[in-house]
Measured scan of single mutants.
Amino acid sequence: NDEAKKEAEKLWKNNKSEDEIKERLERAGISPDEAEQWLQELR
């Protein structure tokens, strides 16, 4: 999970869309709710 979150953070810094980041997190096995929460922390 931490690995996926690091990846999400990297994508965020590269200005990827939130949808793309969420999709990537969900593919890594993170629930949509958790993915949404993680994005809010990044904002």
Rank of each mutant, 00 (worst) to 15 (best):
A4L: 15
W12R: 00
A35L: 09
L42W: 13
E18F: 12
N14T: 09
D33A: 12
N15P: 02
E18C: 13
A8V: 06
K10M: 13
E26R: 14
L42Y: 05
E9L: 14
E9Y: 15
L25Q: 00
N15S: 07
A4C: 15
E7H: 05
L11G: 04
K13E: 04
K10D: 09
K5P: 01
G29M: 02
S17D: 07
E34C: 13
D33W: 13
I21D: 01
W38H: 02
A35Y: 09
K6C: 15
I21K: 01
E9T: 09
E34I: 14
E23H: 07
R27I: 10
K6A: 10
Q40C: 13
N14F: 08
A4Y: 09
K22D: 00
K10N: 10
R43C: 08
W12M: 03
D19K: 12
E36K: 05
W38E: 01
K5W: 15
A28T: 04
K13T: 05
S17Q: 04
D33R: 10
R24G: 08
W38I: 14
K22P: 00
K6H: 05
P32C: 09
K5L: 08
I30R: 01
L39D: 00
E20R: 03
N1M: 14
E3I: 11
K5R: 12
E18T: 06
S17V: 02
E36A: 10
L39W: 04
A35F: 06
G29V: 00
N14E: 14
K10G: 05
A28Q: 09
E41A: 13
N1L: 14
A8M: 10
K16C: 15
E36Y: 07
K16P: 04
A8I: 09
P32H: 08
D33V: 11
R24K: 11
D2G: 09
S31E: 05
E34R: 09
P32F: 07
R43I: 08
G29P: 02
L25I: 02
Q40S: 10
I30M: 13
K5V: 03
N1R: 15
Q37K: 13
L39I: 11
R27M: 12
A28F: 15
N15W: 06
E34S: 04
Q40P: 01
N15Y: 08
Q40N: 11
E3V: 09
R43E: 03
K22N: 02
E26I: 15
W38D: 00
E7R: 04
L42P: 01
I21Q: 02
S31M: 06
A28S: 06
E3M: 11
A8T: 03
K6D: 05
N1V: 14
N1E: 10
E7Q: 06
E18M: 11
R27F: 10
W12E: 00
L39E: 00
S31C: 15
G29R: 01
D19F: 11
G29Q: 02
R43F: 09
N1Y: 14
E7V: 09
S31I: 02
Q40R: 13
K13R: 12
Q37C: 12
D19Q: 13
K22W: 06
A35Q: 07
K22M: 11
E9K: 12
K6S: 07
Q40A: 13
P32N: 08
L42V: 02
E26P: 00
W12N: 00
E20Y: 13
E23L: 13
L42I: 07
L11I: 04
I30A: 04
E18Q: 05
K10V: 11
R27T: 07
S17Y: 04
R24H: 15
W12G: 00
E34W: 04
D19Y: 09
I21V: 06
E7G: 04
S17N: 08
W38Y: 07
E23M: 12
A35C: 12
S17A: 05
N15L: 06
K16A: 14
E36H: 05
D2C: 15
S17C: 13
D19C: 15
A28I: 13
A35V: 14
K10H: 10
K5M: 05
I30T: 03
A28W: 15
G29L: 02
I30W: 10
R43M: 09
D2N: 09
N15V: 02
A35P: 00
D33T: 08
E18G: 04
K5E: 02
N15R: 07
E18D: 10
D33Y: 11
I21M: 01
E34L: 15
E18N: 05
I21P: 00
D2Y: 13
Q37F: 06
E23T: 09
E41T: 12
G29N: 03
R24D: 05
E34P: 02
E18I: 13
E3N: 09
K5N: 01
E20M: 05
L39F: 06
Q37T: 08
E20S: 04
K10E: 13
R24L: 15
L11A: 05
L11Q: 03
E7K: 04
E23F: 08
L25D: 01
N14W: 11
W12Y: 11
L11N: 03
E20K: 03
E26C: 15
L42Q: 04
K16T: 12
E36C: 11
K10F: 13
W38V: 05
W38L: 07
E7Y: 14
L25E: 00
Q40F: 11
G29C: 03
S31Y: 02
D2K: 10
S31Q: 07
S31P: 11
N14Q: 14
Q40Y: 10
E34T: 12
E20I: 07
E7L: 15
G29D: 03
W12K: 00
R27Y: 09
E9M: 14
L42F: 14
E41R: 14
Q37A: 12
N1A: 14
E23W: 09
N14I: 07
E3Y: 11
K13P: 00
G29E: 03
E3Q: 10
K22L: 12
D19A: 14
L25W: 03
A8H: 01
K22S: 01
L25G: 01
A35R: 03
D2S: 11
R43Q: 05
I30H: 03
G29W: 02
D19W: 11
E9Q: 10
W38P: 00
Q37P: 00
K5I: 05
D33G: 08
